[in-house]
Simulated assay, not measured.
Amino acid sequence: MRLDEGTSGVFAIAATPFLPGGAIDEASVDRLTDFYVGCGVSGLTILGIMGEAPKLDQAEALALSDRVIRRAGVPVIVGVSAPGFAAMRGLAHGAMASGAAGVMIAPPPSLRTDDQIISYYRQAVAAIGADVPFVIQDYPLTLSVVMTPGVIRAIVMEHSSCVMLKHEDWPGLEKISALRGFQREGSMRPLSILTGNGGLFLDFEMERGADGAMTGYAFPDMLVELVARAGAGEREAAHDLFDAHLPLIRYEQQQGIGLAVRKYVLWRRGAIAHETQRAPAAGLSAVARAEIEYLLERLGRRDRRAVLG
């Protein structure tokens, strides 16, 4: 179940469930894993930004990844980004030993030049081993590291273990087109491209050549349906489905409270027992909760999955 350049579909970015006191909620980890798989996802991605990975110590991270991998029955990508390569190596090797399909590596915010970015991934591969399939996380809005299509091509061509791009540039449609153009002209080998940003541009990202989505929107079952409809050439149906969910997708994309919104909806859907985030974290006001309920009620008129009772 290792990742390769042909990987496609929807990989749900999994939240990490916590008990009200801040400990990992193991029962909800199992429930949430089952929820994602029941939504028809192709795989899971854990210990990403949405998974509050920086708030976990290494022992917690390894125990969580082992638990999810053993339960999921679908490929699991584990985020191993860390301040130093020793920690990255430990997380990567531990995850792969548990049966992970691959790892995801985000560039540190200190990188500024193309050469620095390319050199960083060269060192990361040396640290984790060239036999570990890895995903480039390209998320300049949060990480402040800008990767041009040429830089991504250079990393892909230097490392056969680089099999996927998590594309979260914004605007980023032209970047997808540029990368697929490299493939058509033969200057870059095939690469799986899964897109993020909460699914905010997934309708057109699929048309530009994305292979699917890797994001944490609280309706992964909708993402699965949208990707399937887009792949089947059902353009109008795909856009109609996307349009129905867009107000909630947009609401989830708010800086600061986006994860709180997602956890609230996952809690409302019965996927987790508590909407708790581990401190430090921003919570939802009573007004925000009422707004989410209003959006869910409106969405429920067009998609029964949002009728939560």
Rank of each mutant, 00 (worst) to 15 (best):
R2G: 00
G6H: 07
T7H: 05
G9C: 12
F11S: 02
F11L: 11
A12H: 14
A14L: 11
A15M: 10
A15T: 06
F18C: 03
F18V: 11
L19W: 01
L19I: 02
P20K: 03
V29P: 08
D30M: 04
R31I: 00
T33V: 10
F35L: 12
Y36A: 06
V37H: 09
G43Q: 05
G51T: 05
G51E: 02
G51I: 03
P54H: 14
L56P: 07
L56Q: 11
D57A: 00
A59D: 12
L64V: 06
L64H: 11
V68N: 05
I69G: 02
A72T: 12
A72H: 03
A72S: 14
G73M: 03
V74N: 08
P75G: 09
S81M: 02
S81Q: 09
A82P: 04
P83T: 12
A87P: 04
A87T: 15
A92M: 07
G94S: 07
A100R: 03
A100Y: 03
A100S: 06
M104D: 03
S110D: 05
R112E: 04
D114L: 03
D115W: 09
Q116T: 09
Q116H: 10
I117L: 05
S119A: 15
Y121N: 02
V125I: 08
A126D: 15
G129V: 12
D131F: 01
F134E: 00
Q137A: 09
S144R: 14
S144K: 15
G150P: 02
R153A: 11
I155H: 04
V156H: 01
V163S: 02
L165N: 01
L165M: 02
E174C: 00
I176P: 05
I176V: 13
F182Q: 07
R184F: 08
M188K: 04
R189C: 06
I193W: 05
T195A: 12
G196C: 04
F201G: 01
D203I: 06
M206C: 14
E207G: 08
R208K: 10
D211I: 12
A218W: 06
A218Y: 11
F219N: 06
F219Q: 05
D221K: 12
M222Y: 12
E225W: 03
L226M: 14
R229Q: 15
A230Q: 14
A230M: 13
A232N: 12
G233I: 15
E234G: 06
R235W: 09
R235L: 14
E236W: 07
D240I: 11
D240L: 13
A244L: 14
R250T: 13
Q254P: 09
G258S: 05
L266R: 07
A271T: 13
I272N: 03
E275T: 00
E275K: 01
E275Y: 00
T276I: 00
Q277T: 07
P280F: 04
P280R: 02
A282L: 01
S285W: 00
S285G: 15
V287I: 10
E293T: 07
Y294R: 13
R305C: 14
